[in-house]
Amino acid sequence: MVAAAVKYAIAAAPEDKYYGTKTNFNLWQPTILKNKDFSLAQLWISKGSYSNNDLNTIEVGWQVYPELYRDSNTRIFIYWTRDGYQITGCYNLNFPGFIQTNNQFAIGGNISPVSSYGGSQFDIDILIWKDPKGGNWWLQVGSYVVGYWSSSIFSYLVDNASSVMWGGEVYSPNPVQTSTQMGSGHFPEEGFGKASYIRNIQVVGSFNILQSPDNVDLMSSQ
């Protein structure tokens, strides 16, 4: 098996019981070096263990992924799995799992305008919350309540999540360092309008209200 290259920069809330999250993602159209590479910014809500192949995740954000979409446009995406990406789960609506309730919003569709280096900045807010009555995980993008993941498709996310993370990722099937950009392709030291951002990070705790996390751990690949 040929190793792949994965680069990431992530903020993670401390492990606890979570029932949702909301944040704003700065929108960019990063340059993709090769067709099979992809670049994304997303949130993760999860519970379980990747090493035991029982990780449950809900993931939402934007990505540029030419192999999947046959173009280099910035697109909103969703993803889920209940077995650590082994068999279950998929992008968007390619397989059953997510129930769309609003046909005014295109899951996997293009999103624009995107930000420009040193110019206008654009972002979008994404909210996931667990309905305390029905138990389903609902998705809202901007002003659109888009649909839900039924808790019945999960093993651990039936009750709550234990981990919430937000960040960016670049994937390349080639283990050699890729030049595919993450976000704007520029580092935080360059500041607003040049480096990509994720802002207004909030979590839904046991009292079913949005609040800032107590603290976050920052992680990045070397």
Rank of each mutant, 00 (worst) to 15 (best):
L55W: 06
K34G: 01
C90V: 03
V170S: 00
Y65R: 07
G118V: 08
N102E: 11
P113F: 10
L93Y: 08
V141C: 10
G48S: 01
E189L: 09
Q177R: 08
T57L: 04
P66S: 02
P188W: 01
I153R: 09
L127A: 10
E67K: 14
N102D: 15
I10P: 00
I58W: 06
D16F: 14
W62Y: 05
Y197V: 02
P188G: 02
Q63R: 14
S72I: 05
N53E: 06
I111L: 12
N102M: 12
L33W: 04
L157E: 10
P132W: 12
F77D: 05
L157K: 01
Y148S: 01
C90N: 09
D83F: 11
T31E: 03
A4N: 10
L93R: 12
W138M: 08
P132D: 04
D131R: 06
N35L: 08
G147M: 09
D217L: 01
I10Q: 04
A9P: 00
G205S: 04
W28F: 13
G193Y: 05
N174D: 15
N102H: 06
Q29D: 05
K34F: 04
S179N: 15
D37A: 06
K36S: 07
N24A: 07
Y117T: 08
A13D: 07
I126D: 05
P14S: 15
Y65P: 00
G183S: 06
Q86Y: 07
E67L: 10
N103T: 15
T57V: 13
N53M: 06
S143M: 14
S120M: 02
V146E: 09
Y65E: 00
D123Y: 12
V114D: 12
P188T: 00
G193L: 13
Q202V: 05
Q29Y: 11
S51G: 13
I76S: 12
P213R: 09
G135H: 07
G205Q: 00
F95C: 14
L27K: 03
Y91M: 01
F98E: 01
Y197P: 07
K194S: 05
Q202G: 03
L139C: 05
V216W: 12
S150Y: 04
I111T: 11
M182A: 13
T101I: 13
T178N: 13
W138D: 03
G205A: 09
N35C: 01
G89N: 00
T21M: 05
D37Y: 10
